[in-house]
Design a protein around this nucleic acid. Structure first.
Length: 869
RNA sequence: GCGGGCGUGAUGGAAUGGUAGACAUAUCGGACUUAAAAUCCGAAGGCCCUGUGCCGUGUGGGUUCGAGUCCCACCGCCCGUACCA
């Protein structure tokens, strides 16, 4: 058996070992997912990558975590589906074409080739046969079919919506392309402009998407909380102010408020610059028109709107207070009111809202409290007397002074309900429930996306394309001439022939829709497509029924809201349109959000004044400062998410080539808890490689050893069972770093053990198995070396023997007043009174008590004793 | 601005409300070596009056027999903020 000499196997050489086992896995189809009723299925999925060019260390971290789970589940007897694909549509491909010529398609597929060739040497247990990219016509054609089904089901509609408009480039800008309110290329001040766009009716599902969060037991609480806040269910009062001498059609202004209990403290009415009344009034009011135009400048992000200086314009119009017709309130147009939320109009109560108070002080409007703290507080200053706005949380008890519910102290929520009741009784509006969640605008005025499969016909209007004509594929060129991507705007709009098509309804000449879909659409159903990636319908219901749901989904916390919410919506839409079973409405059973890999950004300023970003490998660090090769000092921005656009990415390929895939995998898992962000540093990779070499050496020695069984065996086997237990718990709870720490300890124990060869071989084989999800190649090698049966990848996961985990005695720390003073070692199940007696007799306790008698002794069995003096 | 999260030695981090710093990195010392590397063994939170002493988990309060952990406030950083993916 032992024909090879220790000498020849004492060196661990990943460049030989790793390709060898990868070939074995591939030839034996170890990770090929095939439907089977023999074993329970397990679907593990990591959020698929964008093909930015090369993989970075964050990808390695993310996909290694998923691979640990996939390999662990395989060895616990599951039929595992672990696929990989590419989220391949999007702006960077167009930007690349714009910057350096070429075609987005060529750029994208070339990047995919590169990234696949970089991922394969990492030895991930993936079913590569299921791979696809969302820019494959076979994928996006099925997405178009889905869109048509959703259109038919009433889940899609058109309406006007605001976009960022670059008035110089005459093009729509993404939020990312708006920098400090200016277009990134032209530098022109961005304007907000309305376009007719396609929308998914996600808001119809607000209530359901909110309530179903409670069923997601294996999702992080923080993600559920973020989604709940984003959906933003609120209870409030909707009513109308009647206007005085207003233009025709504007005799009422509808407002929505979540604090109707502050109605008697109202001081002004505010409307959005995009409110129909504001737009009407600006026609005859040049100053207002100028003010509104000013408000419409700058980007459309909520952040930009909220952070902008709060400004208002007095329209001169007045409304009557609903409970006092003599009480008139001014109507302001205000830049902080969003047309998209509520009715686009509010009333301001400065006493109980800091933003309204700032506004009131700026425009010298009255301030009047409707409630005060329930308990006397000398430090409290009324807002009308110069204090800050008094804004207690709704469940807090207050005393109403101008409310609707009497004098006795009550909570804000009670006051709100009383106010709604009073208003309804008196015919002033009604209580309503509203959601913050808006419908999902999916139209993009860009080339590199999935074309929206509809046709505009002069006679028939907007007509869905026929399914038999799908896919509506993107044209590669302009009828033989290359598309010029350096011209701003969507090339589909100016394509000579692609737009022209017969109307699917009447057959007359018509025009294709040139908007493409938001790339979030592509990523909202790819998980379902992986169950049958070549099907000629969006899903194969038999395959989907077998493989869905995703049992474990893994991805970045940055996707906590949009991607995950859109996917939850799509799963429901796919059920409604017959593409997924009802039980798949929540498609992800368990979610794990891993932290981001961050790295410093190195920045200089180019001759044109724009920032230039430098790769870490081009920067030399000296005394905390960074320099380029030519000696130029760079600005160091401490730590940010790795991003291609900032060039602060670290290429893992060098580490893989130098130390091997197992070292890279072991290293990215070993040092940090997976949910936490990590500042990337390669220092330590060499030490990780040394450790794996040591494990191999120990295993090789054990394979050669020939020592009789002895008294040390039991201790080693106990260590082994404890390691099995702890590593398993770690892997199941994403505590990979804790599992690895435990494996270090077990390796040290094995290395020092004087046990017999049989016990050592058992321990070493178990060590290889426990390491196999993280270091699969090394583990296969050791497994084979020690005569393991078959592949370690397929070997049943070891089970800890409970009897071997139990200790007979336990060491209890003894505290006096919470400070550790001594310890005792006692039988595990010694009774409390006995433990107390021994504890009080220790030198440490006697010294600390100094003759005094203890007031109380707390004995926590098996954990600690605390003497209270 | 708003929503969510994080903060522990030189460094990454460990710790069901129960001995803070496991495990590792870097460092230092020793063994082996002509030497170096590799390997093996060991040390190590801070402070001083060197006592079985005091302090110590971003800052300040609170709950508790006991707080890194729970609660409140603040500071700093990160993520998201609906057209980056």
């Amino acid at each position: 058996m032992h024909t090879r000499r220790t000498h020849s196997m004492s060196r661990y050489d990943p460049s030989v070992i790793e390709p060898k086992w990868q070939t074995v896995w591939e030839e034996s189809e170890t990770f090929r997912a095939v439907r089977s009723d023999d074993k329970p299925k397990y679907y593990v999925l990591e959020m698929f990558p964008y093909p930015s060019g090369r993989i970075h260390i964050g990808h390695v971290r993310n996909y290694t975590m998923g691979d640990v789970i996939a390999r662990y589940k395989l060895s616990t007897g599951h039929n595992v589906l672990h696929p990989m694909g590419f989220d391949a549509f999007g702006m960077p491909a167009e930007n690349a074409a714009m910057a350096s010529g070429g075609h987005p398609k060529d750029w994208t597929y070339s990047n995919i080739d590169t990234m696949v060739s970089q991922m394969k040497p990492l030895g991930f247990g993936l079913d590569w046969s299921r791979m696809f990219a969302t820019c494959d016509p076979e994928y996006y054609g099925q997405q178009q079919a889905l869109f048509l089904d959703m259109l038919e089901a009433g889940l899609v509609y058109r309406k006007n919506a605001v976009v960022n408009w670059d008035p110089v480039d005459m093009t729509v800008l993404a939020n990312e392309q708006v920098i400090d309110g200016k277009g990134w290329r032209s530098g022109a001040e961005v304007e907000r402009r309305e376009l007719t766009q396609w929308f998914f009716k996600i808001s119809d599902m607000s209530e359901e998407l909110l309530e179903a969060l409670d069923t997601l037991d294996d999702w992080p609480a923080k993600v559920k909380l973020m989604q709940a806040n984003w959906i933003g269910k609120s209870r409030g009062l909707q009513f109308a102010f009647s206007t005085i001498d207003a233009p025709d059609g504007f005799d009422r202004i509808e407002v929505y408020t979540t604090r109707p209990d502050t109605l008697m403290g109202a001081s002004f009415v505010g409307i959005s610059p995009d409110h129909p009344l504001a737009k009407h009034l600006e026609k005859n009011n040049a100053d207002l028109a100028a003010f509104n135009a000013e408000c419409r400048k700058g980007g459309t992000t909520e952040e930009a709107l909220e952070k902008a200086e709060k400004r208002g314009f007095d329209t001169g119009l007045r409304v009557r207070h609903p409970f006092d017709t003599a009480w008139e309130l001014p109507v302001y147009v205000a830049n902080f009111i969003l047309m998209d939320y509520g009715t686009g109009a509010i009333f301001g109560c400065p006493a109980h809202d800091q933003r309204d108070l700032d506004f009131a002080r700026k425009y010298e409007l009255p301030v009047q409290s409707t409630y005060v703290p329930a308990v006397e507080d000398n430090a409290f200053v009324l807002p009308e007397e110069g204090g800050p706005a008094y804004v207690p949380p709704k469940p807090e008890t207050v005393r109403y002074v101008r409310g609707f519910a009497g004098d006795e102290a009550q909570t804000g929520n009670e006051g709100i309900e009383a106010a709604i009741g009073f208003c309804e009784e008196n015919g002033v509006g009604h209580g309503v429930t509203k959601f913050r969640l808006r419908d999902w605008g999916l139209s993009r005025q860009r080339y590199w996306g999935c074309p929206i499969p509809v046709v505009h016909c002069d006679a028939c209007g907007v007509v869905p394309e026929k399914k038999e004509n799908l896919p509506i594929a993107l044209p590669y060129d302009e009828d033989g001439k290359a598309i010029d991507f350096s011209i701003p705007g969507n090339p589909l709009d100016r394509h000579p022939s692609w737009r022209n098509c017969p109307c699917p309804s009447c057959g007359q000449p018509a025009k294709r829709e040139t908007d493409t879909m938001d790339t979030f659409v592509d990523s909202s159903w790819y998980f379902a497509r992986f169950t049958a990636p070549r099907a000629d319908t969006p899903t194969d219901i038999v395959e989907a029924d077998y493989w869905m749901n995703v049992d474990q989904y893994i991805g970045g916390i940055e996707h906590a809201i949009l991607h995950l919410l859109y996917s939850r919506f799509f799963a429901r839409a796919m059920h409604i349109t017959g593409h997924l079973p009802e039980r798949c409405k929540e498609p992800f059973n368990a979610l794990f959000t891993q932290g981001m890999v961050t790295h410093a950004i190195y920045k200089t300023t180019g001759t044109d004044g724009r920032p230039v970003y430098h790769y870490p490998e081009d920067v030399e660090l000296r005394d905390g400062k960074g320099f380029l090769k030519d000696g130029t000092e760079v600005e160091i921005i401490p730590s940010a998410k790795m991003s291609k656009s900032k060039n602060n990415v670290v290429d893992p390929v060098a580490i893989i080539q130098q130390y091997g895939a197992d070292t890279a995998r072991w290293f990215v898992l070993s040092d940090s808890p997976p949910e936490r962000d990590v500042e990337w540093t390669a220092s330590g990779a060499e030490a990780a490689a040394r450790h794996l070499g040591r494990v191999y050496r120990i295993a090789a020695e054990v394979a050669e050893a020939n020592d009789a069984a002895n008294a040390e065996d039991d201790a080693l086997l106990r260590e082994m069972h404890k390691a099995i237990h702890d590593v398993t718990v770690g892997v199941e709870s994403f505590g990979f770093n804790a599992s690895i720490a435990r494996l270090y300890a077990f390796t040290n124990a094995l290395s020092k053990s004087k046990a017999g060869s049989d016990a050592k071989r058992q321990a070493a084989k178990t060590l290889a198995q426990l390491m196999s999800p993280m270091t699969p190649h090394l583990s296969e090698e050791i497994w084979a070396l020690l005569g393991g049966e078959g592949l370690v990848a397929n070997a049943p996961w070891p089970v800890a023997d409970e009897a071997m985990l139990v200790e007979d005695t336990v060491t209890l720390p003894i505290q006096v007043n919470g400070k550790r003073r001594d310890e005792i070692t006692v039988p595990k199940d010694m009774d409390k009174a006995e433990v107390e007696k021994l504890a009080l007799a220790t030198d440490g306790v006697k010294r600390a008590l100094d003759g005094a008698s203890p007031k109380k002794v707390i004995v926590v069995p098996g954990r600690i004793v605390n003497v209270v003096a």
